[in-house]
Simulated scan of single mutants.
Amino acid sequence: MKTFLQNAKRWLPGAIISLALVAVILNAVDLPSTWRAIRAANYTLLLAAAILSVIWLMVRGIVWRTLLKNRPSYRDTFITVGEGYLMNNFLPFRLGEIGRAFLLSRKTELSFTEILPTIVVERIFDLIISAAILITAVPYVAEAEGTEQIGYLIGGVVLIAIVALYIIARNQKWALNLFNKLTARIPKLQGLGSGLVESLLAGLSVFTEGWLFLRFLFWILINWAIAIFQYTLIIAAFFPQATLIWGLFGLGAAAFGNAIPSLPGAIGTLEAAIGGALNLLSNDMSTALAVALVVRLYNYAFTGIVGVYGFTTEGETLSGIYQQLKDFRKGGS
Rank of each mutant, 00 (worst) to 15 (best):
A290I: 00
E122I: 00
D327K: 09
T66Y: 06
G151D: 04
G156E: 04
L165E: 03
V141N: 05
I79V: 11
L297C: 14
S33P: 00
E148V: 13
F239M: 10
A23Q: 06
T113N: 12
K330G: 11
E316K: 15
L104P: 08
I186E: 10
G268P: 05
F239R: 05
S282M: 12
R170V: 13
G265E: 13
T183M: 15
G257R: 03
L47W: 13
I260P: 04
K188R: 12
A255T: 08
G151S: 03
I98Y: 09
P32D: 04
G268F: 01
L68S: 02
V157A: 00
Q190C: 10
L270M: 04
P240H: 08
K326M: 14
I98W: 07
P187D: 04
A48S: 14
Q241A: 15
I222H: 00
A227I: 09
Y85P: 07
I274G: 02
Y85C: 07
T232L: 01
A40F: 02
A40V: 07
L116V: 12
A242R: 09
I62W: 03
F311A: 01
E314F: 05
P264R: 05
G84I: 06
R100D: 12
G61Y: 03
E143M: 09
R39F: 10
A41Q: 05
S286T: 02
Q6H: 12
L221S: 14
I128S: 01
A184D: 14
F238T: 05
L19F: 12
